[in-house]
Design a binder for these strands. Sequence first.
DNA 1: TTGAAAGCGCTAACAT
DNA 2: ATGTTAGCGCTTTCAA
Lengths: 331, 331
Amino acid sequence: MAALRDVAKKAGVSASTVSRVINRPDTVPTTTKSRVLKAIKNLNYHPNKFAQRLRSHNVDRKLVGLLVPDIQNPFYVDVVKGVEDYCFERGYAVLMGNFMQDEKKGQMYLEVMQSEEIDGLIVAPIQEHHKTISQFKEKKIPIICIDRGLKNIDVDVVLVENEEGAYQAVDHLVKQGHIRIAYVGGIPSIPTTLEREKGYSQALLDNGLNVDDELIKYGDSTHLSGKELTEELLQLKDRPTALFTGNNLITLGALETIHKHKLHIPGDIAIIGFDDMPWSISLNPPLSAVSQPGYDIGKRATELLFQRISDPKRSPVKVVLKTKLILRESG
Amino acid sequence: MAALRDVAKKAGVSASTVSRVINRPDTVPTTTKSRVLKAIKNLNYHPNKFAQRLRSHNVDRKLVGLLVPDIQNPFYVDVVKGVEDYCFERGYAVLMGNFMQDEKKGQMYLEVMQSEEIDGLIVAPIQEHHKTISQFKEKKIPIICIDRGLKNIDVDVVLVENEEGAYQAVDHLVKQGHIRIAYVGGIPSIPTTLEREKGYSQALLDNGLNVDDELIKYGDSTHLSGKELTEELLQLKDRPTALFTGNNLITLGALETIHKHKLHIPGDIAIIGFDDMPWSISLNPPLSAVSQPGYDIGKRATELLFQRISDPKRSPVKVVLKTKLILRESG
DNA sequence: TTGAAAGCGCTAACAT
DNA sequence: ATGTTAGCGCTTTCAA
């Protein structure tokens, strides 16, 4: 591995000159510069990042941390893709952590990212993370939140109109004549679950229907939980005629249970879920869904992150993206 | 940020002693050790990774590079999950790169990973990458390949029986009475595409059918390409009565086109694809598929990687996992 | 315009 | 059993 001094020797200059060529090219005359550049090329020299970093902590690491709750959820895959594309264009790499809604796992990743001295963090937090994340704040490492903000800490956040999105879906269901509409939610402690529940209830209320607690279920935002909760709902003596599901994994689980019972959609039971998927159209039946712009969310979050990296003191903003109700055949 | 010397001062010892406590705890007596440990805790000291790394290049970085062709393909999501879980258990983080079958992008990630001095690399290579990947070999950074091996370089590899898996699917289709079976493949230059084509052709031949080039299509392994290729197939005057699709994205695309034409599956046209998905059962109709153990592939690859990290000279192995034909209703 | 020298935080040989 | 010292590869005053 060629080092700075090798380049210096080859070019017949001192190490400092080489360093200047690399870091402040305009401070060295063209003739010297070209000689150094040639030596660099010749030796295939690449600065040692560890030495650079050790010497000056303020140099960019070109590394962004990304912490997502569940990589198997297609929505987050879109987000990841958005982040990755944007970073790639700017020569940044992504250090990814998939914490599976697990606090300990999230904690571990946060520590790794801290010791890697990432330039910034994009995270879809679950409540418990607050304390460790605030360490980032103290260390002046920019944080952008996705999907949900953070209590007690003022950070940039990009999210969607969860309440509004849920409202539209449920309102549509009511307009179709449904009276008993259930909500199959995710983890009750995370804001999105609650906001969607709020939109659900409001739509019911606004249409003169009352909210029946029996029809509101919470789980853990997984496929399995979607299956089980739907099963419970179908066991009810006065079973719902429509389902509003809290995310795509839950929707898929619900679908499975409904099919197991040989129920017809939307004849026997209608279903609209949060999160559209590329293959929604190929499901049985083609699924109506509240579409979230996952890719854009990732992209916007990264945009915000780079803004904050270059201007750490700009005041935090909140970007709210719209959802879109996509009607197909399930409800 | 507390440094080594701060701990040393606080504990009333020299820096080397603190270093010893951290790196070779058994070389320092319990009394001293506990004093140092207390100081470490007190100051919330964490060794600076950059300094460590600069000083001794042979210390583990606890960082594994993972390069996947397409994070939006659910199969690779499973692989990622397998890698991540295994790494997490051992305190390793994952530096992920999603190169979208794009050589330049892959190249860039490879460079980043090199300069990050990752401990090892797991990659599902496309042909062109060979030269850069061989740089890793030279640098003695362990590489494990997934899905396909590497020409001219002897690396560990974990893959599935592509030919056998394809054979079973097509053989089944023939036994169902199909005579005109098409193959909708992915990128023709990658081995998996060819191996699956081989299994497809062999199954036809073994059943006394001949291989019709008109029924073999190649594309780029995406959803869109699956749609388009299927469209072409359906335009044929003597259209196929069954499709064998090369991966899950292609399958989903094919499904979409078939539905657009209001064709009944499997009545008008049957379809079996490579790669099962968690929601295959909820598709219209429930999809038959050749299932690949993506999670296991990731896990095994990581296992191999750690083995190689601890024993760099063990000779390369090739792990071949089995596929499983899962029959549902599409064929 | 360029070079010499110091030092980032750590580890390891060597000395005691 | 512990401390002293040198140096990993780089950047950055400071001096020439």
